[in-house]
Computed example of a mutant assay.
Amino acid sequence: MPMSDKDQDLGGLGAFFDAARAHPPAPSPDLLARVLGDAEAEQIWITRRAQPAAEAPRAGLLEQLYRLLGGWPAMAGLTTAIVAGVWIGTALPEGVSGSTEAAYLVDITPEAVFELAGDF
């Protein structure tokens, strides 16, 4: 049998619900004392925690950069990339040295010639 808001027939349980509503349970004094004790302890703990702690010394610039980049794993990868970039950028391959070195170096604007020893 489907129930709806208008159909409140609970099969004879209404009398039991009415009796339970007439005598609501009250907490025991022991339970109330324990709850109040826990609440006071929590208030004390919160006030102690709310007190400002001594300020930690500020981190230096390098430590801030270290934390910003993500710690030692990131710093190791960054260092490796820097070293590899400097090495690749400064060491010419063996096949380029000699007469073909000029072909390796490309001048973007050949008409912009800088004369270091100009005519006076």
Rank of each mutant, 00 (worst) to 15 (best):
D9W: 06
L10G: 05
L13D: 01
G14T: 11
A15M: 06
A15L: 13
F17Y: 07
A22S: 07
A22C: 02
A22H: 01
H23I: 03
P24T: 01
P25Q: 15
A26S: 10
D30Q: 13
L31V: 13
L31Q: 09
L32Y: 01
L32P: 00
A33G: 05
A33S: 14
R34M: 10
R34T: 10
V35A: 07
L36W: 15
L36A: 13
D38M: 15
A39W: 02
A39L: 03
E40Q: 05
E40R: 11
E40W: 04
A41Q: 05
E42M: 15
I44D: 03
I46T: 12
I46H: 02
T47F: 03
R48K: 15
R49V: 14
R49I: 04
A53C: 09
A53R: 14
E55I: 03
E55L: 05
E55P: 03
E55D: 08
R58E: 09
R58A: 15
R58N: 09
G60A: 03
L61H: 12
L62Q: 14
E63S: 05
Q64F: 02
L65H: 10
L68N: 08
L69P: 00
G70I: 01
G71F: 02
G71A: 09
W72A: 10
P73V: 07
M75T: 04
M75Y: 14
A76W: 12
A76T: 07
T79E: 11
T79P: 00
T79D: 09
T80N: 09
T80F: 11
A81K: 14
A81P: 00
A81M: 12
I82G: 04
I82K: 07
I82W: 15
I82L: 04
A84I: 08
G85I: 01
V86W: 09
W87P: 00
W87Q: 08
G89N: 09
T90Y: 08
A91Q: 05
A91T: 13
A91P: 00
L92M: 05
P93L: 10
E94D: 13
G95T: 05
V96E: 15
G98T: 02
T100S: 15
T100Y: 15
E101P: 00
A102R: 13
A103M: 06
Y104I: 02
Y104A: 04
L105W: 08
L105C: 12
V106D: 13
V106C: 11
I108H: 12
I108S: 14
P110A: 00
E111N: 11
E111L: 02
